[in-house]
Simulated assay, not measured.
Amino acid sequence: LPFIQRQIELVDPEILVTLGNPSTQTLLSTREGIMKTRGRWLNYDTGTRVIRAMATFHPAYLLRSPSYKRLSWQDLRAISKALAHTTS
Rank of each mutant, 00 (worst) to 15 (best):
A82N: 02
S72E: 13
R77G: 06
F57N: 14
R70Q: 04
L16Y: 00
S23W: 01
I51L: 03
L1D: 04
Y61I: 10
N43A: 09
Q25E: 05
G39C: 04
T48V: 11
L27G: 02
Y68T: 11
K69W: 01
K36G: 03
F3C: 08
A84E: 13
Q5S: 05
K36T: 09
D45V: 05
V11H: 10
A82T: 09
M54Q: 06
T24D: 02
L42R: 13
M35C: 03
W73A: 13
A53E: 01
G33W: 00
I8T: 07
A55T: 14
I34G: 00
R64N: 13
S88G: 15
I15H: 03
T56Q: 10
R64I: 12
M35D: 08
N21F: 01
Q7Y: 08
L62R: 02
D75S: 14
T26A: 09
N43V: 06
L83E: 06
E9V: 13
R52L: 12
W73D: 15
Q7E: 12
R52K: 14
R77W: 07
T56F: 08
Y68Q: 14
Q25R: 11
L76Q: 07
A84G: 13
R52T: 06
I34Q: 00
G33R: 01
S65A: 11
I4L: 08
Q74R: 11
R70D: 04
P59V: 14
T37R: 02
A78Y: 12
F3A: 10
I15A: 03
T86M: 02
S23A: 10
T30D: 00
P2C: 05
S29R: 09
I4S: 10
F57D: 15
T18E: 06
L19F: 12
S80A: 15
T46G: 09
Q25P: 01
L19Y: 11
H85G: 10
T46D: 06
S67R: 06
T46R: 06
Q25Y: 01
D12F: 08
S23D: 04
R77Q: 14
K36V: 14
R31N: 09
R31K: 12
L83Q: 02
E32Q: 11
M54D: 04
D75P: 05
A82K: 07
I79G: 03
R31Y: 07
A78G: 10
W41G: 10
P59K: 06
L27D: 04
T86P: 02
A55V: 05
L71D: 04
K81C: 13
T37P: 03
Q5R: 04
R52D: 13
Y61R: 05
S23R: 05
S29I: 07
L76R: 06
I4R: 10
I15Q: 01
T86Y: 15
L76D: 07
L16A: 00
W73Q: 15
H58I: 06
W41H: 08
A60C: 11
T86W: 08
T56A: 07
M35W: 08
S67I: 08
S23G: 02
V11Y: 12
L42I: 08
V50N: 06
L19E: 09
L27A: 03
Y44V: 00
F57E: 15
G39V: 04
R77L: 05
R6C: 03
T87M: 15
I4D: 09
M35A: 09
I8S: 07
I4F: 11
S23K: 04
L42P: 06
D45E: 12
F3Q: 15
I51D: 01
E14W: 08
L63W: 13
M35Q: 12
